[in-house]
Nucleic acid binder design. Structure first.
Length: 572
RNA sequence: CGGGGCGUAGCGCAGCCUGGUAGCGCGCCUGCUUUGGGAGCAGGAUGUCGGAGGUUCAAAUCCUCUCGCCCCGACCA
């Protein structure tokens, strides 16, 4: 592609509303433009990158035996009513009405549509297993879209759905997808980790997220460097902490703690370590007020809490709500707290002679002992992991925490949708059974953004060759010098004919501009053709990633570029 | 949705407090020069100051309402 004929408007300055590197760079380099909050247009270079990502996804999905379909983006409400999600999904679902006042939604995901499709045509175990996928636009009316295409409202997603006759088949399909995803993200040159994950709103039993490791990631993951166990902090299993010491259980006592409300203040006031505290948080869960206990030096993970109490939503209660159950913010405690369900983190179980609020102003209890002074209705693992927590899967591994960008998510759905929507088949024995389902998503645009988060420097993007908009850019530094132009043109033609996708910067710009824009756009290689080099009989090949420059005679350029690109691809 | 902030030329911003002819840098157009890391000179184009209402002789500036966008929290590919 000649850049004089291309449309890749670069900006010197990033728009003020861009926050993270990928967002800024995609806009500056001319890959995307914003239309509205969370809604983006893809420019030609952006489309090229996305198509390359899609191509890798298609190849690996097809290799895994999945079949491509294309489902409607507009879906009738009736299907969602059948699955029960019309009510559950909430405001994220963009609901629309047609001219006959019939209700539809713009698809945020396609379990309903695919289940409806399959149940109509699949009758027998002989037709299973089946794995169908598509790459298509979704719309989720996110409360807060941000970070450009990283968390857009309209976005492109590869979603696959598997249907099996039995659990073993479903697990095989799941494993096949796990392998395919690993292949996809490896080929895309990403540093990633598959982690055990919460299933959230989609539902189902087991699930893994594919996390691209990046500081700007919105998710946190815990992993054990010894045995390889890795999980989202919303899911990570934390074992009970054994308490050290062998104190005798003492009798409950109350103590005045004027104006000391936070754990920090009280622990300083009483000169006791915060790990002796039983922090009591009053939550509202699906309309009911509950008390949640956790050791003072730990935090509650609300997703884990949701799962533990099998609730739809939780939020910290308001001050009025806290007072309505006979306690107060700052001095809440489980002792004497009546008519409120008490859920305790496992870390509370082994606390001996602990400290809690006394449900009275400026008063705490000490020598509080679980089982003696209060008894929680439920002990569960609801705590946020901290670095150094013991690994739940191996003997003396320790967990580390990292940040990740969720680019893929695979679920074993079980019969959640097939039962609700009667997607049944006849098994070998002639009995009707619901199909066992799985679903598997990849955020296409987000994957591109994640790649930039992982591969950029102060000058711009550094695309891995597998998804770069062009393999290489040829830079004739002066258009007035006939020799420079002739050599650049011939290398460009040779690359084009040799199976590569090169760009030729034939714009009449000063060399500095061409260098800077080439760095910004992130071509894996730059071929510099200048008067200076040609005087010595050479052109330069620069590797964007390392900055390394190699000189080579014009006739040898093609070979050098080919070799270097292959090397770059294999390293990634 | 709760909390905070911002809307002035294509982009980045100043002007607003203290009302009085709408500015700067980059970009864009024309010409000449220049061409190995975002050139120089000369000339030029571009604004419903987010929108509506109000106060005033006079509003980008003060007041009210409204829309949009961004950041921090709970959701997700």
């Amino acid at each position: 592609m000649r850049l004089t004929k291309f449309y890749i408007p670069a900006l010197k300055e990033a728009p003020a509303d861009a926050e993270i590197a990928s967002h800024k760079l995609m806009i500056r380099a001319g890959f995307i433009r914003k239309l509205a909050a969370g809604v983006y247009s893809l420019l030609p270079a952006g489309v090229k990158v996305i198509r390359k990502i899609e191509a890798v996804i298609r190849e690996e999905m097809n290799r895994a035996g999945a079949l491509e379909v294309y489902l409607p983006s507009v879906q009738p409400a009736s299907l969602w009513e059948e699955s029960g999600r019309w009510e559950v999904y909430g405001k994220e679902l963009l609901r629309i009405t047609d001219r006959h006042n019939r209700e539809f939604c713009y698809g945020p995901t396609h379990e309903e549509v695919i289940t409806d499709l399959v149940r109509r045509d699949v009758r027998s175990y002989r037709d299973l297993p089946l794995n169908l996928y598509q790459i298509q636009t979704k719309f989720r009316d996110e409360i807060r879209p941000r970070f450009g295409v990283m968390r857009a409202r309209e976005f492109s997603m590869k979603d696959a759905y598997s249907f099996d006759a039995d659990e073993e088949g479903a697990k095989e399909n799941y494993e096949a997808m796990r392998k395919a995803y690993t292949a996809i993200f490896s080929r895309l040159g990403l540093k990633f980790r598959a982690v055990e994950a919460d299933t959230g709103q989609i539902g189902g039993s087991a699930s893994h997220e594919f996390m691209v490791l990046a500081e700007t990631g919105e998710d946190r993951i815990a992993h054990c460097d010894k045995c390889g166990y890795a999980a989202n902090v919303e899911k990570v299993e934390l074992s009970d902490i054994a308490v050290s010491g062998d104190e005798n259980v003492q009798d409950l006592q109350s103590v005045d703690t004027p104006n000391a409300k936070t754990i920090e203040e009280v622990s300083e006031f009483l000169d006791m370590d915060s790990s002796r505290f039983i922090k009591t948080l009053i939550y509202k869960a699906d309309g009911n007020i509950i008390a949640v206990l956790i050791r003072g030096d730990y935090e509650v993970n609300e997703t884990k809490l949701l799962r533990a109490i099998d609730s739809g939503e939780v939020a910290l209660a308001s001050e009025e709500e806290v007072e309505s159950v006979g306690t107060m913010v700052g001095f809440a405690g489980p002792v004497g707290l009546e008519n409120v369900r008490i859920i305790a983190d496992s870390s509370v179980k082994s606390i001996v002679n602990g400290v809690t609020g006394a449900n009275r102003v400026d008063t705490h209890f000490f020598n509080v002992n679980p089982g003696k002074d209060f008894t929680p209705g439920l002990y569960a693992d609801i705590r946020e992991a901290v670095p150094g927590d013991p690994c739940p899967r191996c003997d003396d591994g320790k967990l580390s925490l990292a940040r990740g960008i969720e680019v893929g998510h695979i679920f074993q759905l079980g019969v959640k949708y097939s039962e609700a929507m009667k997607a049944n088949f006849l098994n070998r024995e002639g009995k009707e059974r619901p199909m066992i389902m799985g679903c598997y998503g990849i955020g296409v645009g987000r994957t591109g953004a994640a790649s930039i988060e992982q591969n950029h420097d102060d000058n711009g993007i550094i695309w891995p060759p597998s998804i770069a908009p062009f393999d290489v850019v040829v830079l004739p530094l002066s258009l007035k010098d006939e020799e420079v132009v002739r050599v650049a043109e011939s290398i460009y033609e040779e690359l084009k004919n040799g199976g590569f996708d090169p760009a030729l910067d034939d714009r009449n710009l000063r060399p500095g501009v061409k260098f800077n824009e080439s760095d910004l756009v992130g071509y894996p290689l730059q071929v510099v053709v200048g008067r200076k080099g040609l005087a010595d009989g050479v052109v330069e090949v620069k590797i964007r990633k390392t900055g390394e420059r190699m000189t080579v005679a014009p006739e040898g350029a093609f070979h050098k570029i080919k070799e270097t690109l292959e090397k770059l691809s294999s390293i990634d």
